[in-house]
Design a protein around this nucleic acid. Structure first.
Length: 355
DNA sequence: AAATCGGGGGA
DNA sequence: TCCCCAGATTT
């Protein structure tokens, strides 16, 4: 039996019941694929359902404000996905009358749609014979066929691309693509796969040569940079506070955050300061600034290690801070703004903001 | 080719 | 801790 046949047989028995598998609507498939980029199914699923509930069609998504989209995306990470999702929805709704492109080549031109996503949509919705190549597929192919080329180099990717396209069932590209990804997710797992129940174990190069733990191979590792952040939370009795939207490129773009303390207000406030301080620019207002936590909060991202301290200043009247009012927005209901997870956790832990 | 972009979960 | 997750985009 061929690889693809065996794979599809395995899939027909072991598949999970997932909502985006019950449709061929390009909008729903596209939405699911953007949500699932670098994201586990269990983590993305509630977001997918929430988005579909808020935005049943591409027109609904297109007519939303970006801030609303980001708020719904909050906590899922890689926020450029949300911005590109919204931009593409507007493009499809306004320029394409709500109709998505129907080929992988045309799909790839959409913002936020790369090679993988284009192939996924084209095969699932339009049965175009294009093989997907995601983390699952790299792992399955590298092990079963003993490919030890690096998966994160252009040269290695070409090797895998050729092999994937050769193995693809051209008659059932949708089924095959679903099957190989599901197989990677459930059976050929990154760590400690149960190869004793694997249908390919007899012919699996990695298993037969005890190379399961060594494949797939990667070239680079991400280095984690440390960063210290001090947030100033000026809050009144009603729970109003100053915030600003991050419009610059980079991390957390278009999300909201509190004023940053070190560079903007104070000379000589050192990193990780955790004692009661009085800020120069606030002294005249006699606002006592107190750290909320005894130690800075550690917040881990895949490429950064953040140490964040929240400084609380209780105020009675915001009009006493005309200079801050120019740069910052007075937020009256903080819960409606998209914020990074670490700030959301602070908001929940404090009792300054009415639930 | 390398760096950047989030956050969560498994071992 | 380290690694990976239905990757894409910028540098």
């Amino acid at each position: 039996m061929q690889f693809s046949e065996k794979l599809i047989d395995w899939y027909s028995i072991n598949l999970r019941d997932l909502p985006w598998r019950a449709t061929q609507d390009p909008y729903k498939i596209w939405l699911s694929e953007i949500v699932l980029q670098q994201t586990r199914v269990v983590q993305g699923l509630p977001y997918y359902l929430r988005f579909l509930k808020h935005f049943p069609t591409v027109f609904d998504l297109a007519s939303a404000k970006e801030d609303e989209v980001l708020k719904l995306w909050q906590g899922l990470g890689y926020y450029s996905r949300a911005r590109n999702l919204h931009a593409t929805a507007k493009f499809i709704a306004k320029e394409k009358n709500g109709i998505f492109p129907q080929t992988a080549k045309a799909l790839k031109k959409l913002k936020g749609v790369g090679e993988y996503t284009a192939h996924a949509i084209a095969s699932f919705c339009f049965h175009e014979p294009v093989a997907v190549l995601d983390g699952n597929v790299f792992r399955v192919l590298s092990r079963v066929f003993g490919v030890n080329d690096e998966i994160d180099t252009p040269a290695g990717k070409r090797i895998f691309n050729d092999l994937a396209q050769k193995l693809l069932d051209k008659e059932k590209p949708d089924l095959y693509n679903q099957a190989i990804m599901e197989f990677g997710a459930l059976q050929c797992t990154p760590k400690n796969p149960d190869c004793t129940i694997c249908p390919f174990s007899k012919n699996c190069v990695a298993y037969q040569n005890q190379l399961i733990a060594d494949l797939p191979r990667k070239k680079k590792k991400v280095k984690v940079k440390q960063e210290h952040i001090n947030y100033l939370v000026l809050v009144d009795q009603k729970g109003n506070t100053f915030m600003k939207q991050r419009t610059q490129k980079g991390i957390w773009r278009n999300l909201f955050e509190f004023p940053r303390l070190e560079s903007e207000f104070v000379n000589g406030v050192s990193e990780g300061l955790n004692e009661t301080i009085k800020l120069k620019s606030l002294e005249s207002h006699k606002v006592e600034i107190i750290p909320f936590y005894p130690q800075p909060v550690k917040h881990l991202l895949s490429h950064r290690k953040l140490f964040i301290q929240f400084y609380i200043g209780k105020v009675t009247d915001y009009s006493a801070f005309p200079s801050l009012s120019k740069k910052y927005h007075i937020v009256q209901n903080i819960h409606t703004f998209a914020v990074p997870v670490v700030i959301e956790r602070f908001i929940e832990a404090s009792d300054f903001f009415n639930s």
